[in-house]
């Protein structure tokens, strides 16, 4: 069984509009891949479609996680199977504390009738919050309510650390972050890197990739990957700008 997240000939529509076009990408477990691309090219659509958002219709193609198709799984089943999406715009959930929210997510992973060991849970939660420099007082704050951009993104990484996914898709985790928050979030992601995690980092800017060094960089344009390379591709893209991608894509076509 191949240990990878394997996306093959994926096509995704929003309404009647085809956004993701014959998309192919394989992320072996243990690697971090980055997708870069201009706005409106389908990066976030890819992320939401992988997670199973009902507004994003997968018209054809396949997504295998460690050899098993996830496309017939419900959104929550995909998550419990080991797929994690860090949201570009995390939702606020008034009145639901971070501690209770993550606890509900962890409980959902236990067999029926079993409950989380509360002291062990809080120990783990506090350790991971400390590592992400999230004040422990946040456990009793409502999920994302009144959080700054940086706090929301750190909270996403905290959830990822607590849920220990096999594969993670990080959708513009750098957007809205100042340099300090960017470093903390990156350290958080880097701490989770290793043989048990495959990650796809979606970003508009090369800046994030100075902190999360990718094994591979893919450039996305108009719903498909048009160029792949190592981390130097991100630097080249930063120098030449997205017009360069437009040019090479249109020349190729």
């Amino acid at each position: 069984m191949s240990q990878s997240l394997e996306i093959t000939n994926l096509n995704v529509n929003i309404g009647d509009k085809r956004i993701i076009k014959d998309f192919n990408l394989t992320i072996p477990k243990g690697e971090v891949h980055a997708i870069m691309g201009p706005n409106g090219t389908g990066k976030s659509t890819l992320a939401k479609a992988l997670a199973g958002h009902p507004d994003y219709e997968i018209t054809s193609g396949e997504v295998l996680m460690d050899g098993e198709s996830i496309l017939d799984l419900e959104v929550d089943e995909r998550s419990r199977a080991g797929l994690f999406l860090a949201f570009q715009y995390p939702m606020e959930i008034p009145g639901v504390t971070i501690a209770n929210f993550i606890r509900a997510a962890k409980n959902a992973r236990l067999p029926d009738g079993e409950d989380l060991n509360a002291p062990a849970y809080y120990k783990e939660l506090y350790e991971k919050m400390d590592a992400l420099k999230i004040d422990r007082k946040f456990t009793s704050r409502s999920v994302n309510e009144g959080f700054s951009g940086g706090e929301k993104k750190r909270c996403e990484i905290l959830q990822m650390a607590m849920l220990e996914p096999k594969y993670a898709v990080l959708d513009e985790t750098d957007s809205g972050l100042d340099i300090d928050a960017l470093k903390i979030v990156s350290e958080g992601v880097n701490a989770l890197r290793g043989g048990n995690l495959g990650a796809l980092v979606i970003t508009h800017y090369q800046r994030l990739l100075n902190y999360i060094i990718p094994d591979q960089v893919h450039v996305m344009y108009d719903g498909r990957i048009v160029k792949s390379g190592d981390k130097s591709l991100a630097e080249e893209l930063e120098r030449k700008g997205y017009d360069w991608i437009k040019e090479i894509t249109e020349t190729a076509a």
Partner: peptide, 23 residues
């Protein structure tokens, strides 16, 4: 959707929203 994407089943997610609403 956000809660489902964390693996929380829909009935539990709805309950959580309601508890939160009343807090």
């Amino acid at each position: 959707f956000y809660m489902l994407a964390r693996g929380i089943p829909k009935p539990v997610a709805q309950e959580l929203v309601v508890y939160g609403f009343f807090e």
